[in-house]
Amino acid sequence: MFNYTIRRLLLAVPTLLLISFLIFLLLDLAPSDPTANLPLTIPPEVREKIRISLGLGEAFHIRFLLWCKQFFYNETLNILEQWWGWDFGGDRLRVLSWQTRSPVVDTIVQRIPQTLWVVGMSYVVGILIAVPIGIVSAYKQYSWFDQVGTFVSMVGYSVPTFFTGVLVIVIFSVWLGWFPSIYDTTLVVNDWSSFVQQVKQMIMPVSVLALYNAAQISRFMRASMLDNLNQDYVRTARAKGIRERSVILVHVLRNSLIPVVTVIALGVPQVFGGAIITEQVFKVNGLGQLLIIAIQAGDVPTVQTLTFIFAFLIVFFNLIADVLYGILDPRIRYD
């Protein structure tokens, strides 16, 4: 397993380099202009100067290599400096956003907390809801609970979050006035009242996203449970005289969780990717919003860096999922 993991990690390096190159190429080929969103009152020659000051005057391969150096080398050194207080000295240019002219990585670090709080929490809540629903739905297949669960899942999966998001805002913010419609990213939780405020502002985005996540995962859970419920070893367990609860929770659930856990692991990069639409609807301004704004503004360094980080997370969590599979399922061994 260890060798396998190391080998996969080593293989990931060329993969990620290739991905970063492809992203860069795609972004370069895409018709986008960082000065496109400026007011038309700014004349073309000024725009040209802005473009040159952004480094767009250089050839493609120079810009790509420069990004690689800035991201893989300069930013790494910078992180080391910040974490361990080392000082490598020298004047290193970091990856700078074209919109904000500030280091992209700093902005990303700034955005991670709200994304993790809201999107991550919704993922956790989604899983916590989905697993029991999946279990009960499968155990009582075709019961009213299962039918309702199927319906809710279908709704949660197929109704887009920009609809459910606006709906809950209209109901709970506009009509009832219970929760704020706009997320305050500067809120610092340091006492009970600010905690209550944080909970209040998280409830709507978290529920909307959790519904969506739960819909997906509960279907997986249900299908996996159904697969296992009909297995012979379940009958064996019952014949042994095991309590029904233990039959379900120990025998069926543990086996059913194997594929579900890997699906959950594969979904984690999406958490970091943020929920573009939901973040936009609730003004959570996390990584998803950062990405979409950067795309709209033609901010290539930000888009490149973010998509690369997402690519890295996807590759990494794929590995995690595979390793988890190996750990959870004794039948699978990687050698």
């Binding site: 805002i169 913010s173 506009v174 006035g177 704020p180 419609s181 706009i182 305050d184 500067t186 936009q280 609807v281 003004k283 301004n285 919003q289 704004i293």
Partner: peptide, 22 residues
């Protein structure tokens, strides 16, 4: 002053004209 950015025009309008948050 809290100068919040992001979202869309409808949401911004709602926060001033309907919920009074801004």
């Amino acid at each position: 002053v809290t100068f919040k950015g992001g979202g869309d025009a409808a949401a911004a309008g709602r926060s001033v004209l309907e919920t009074g948050e801004f």
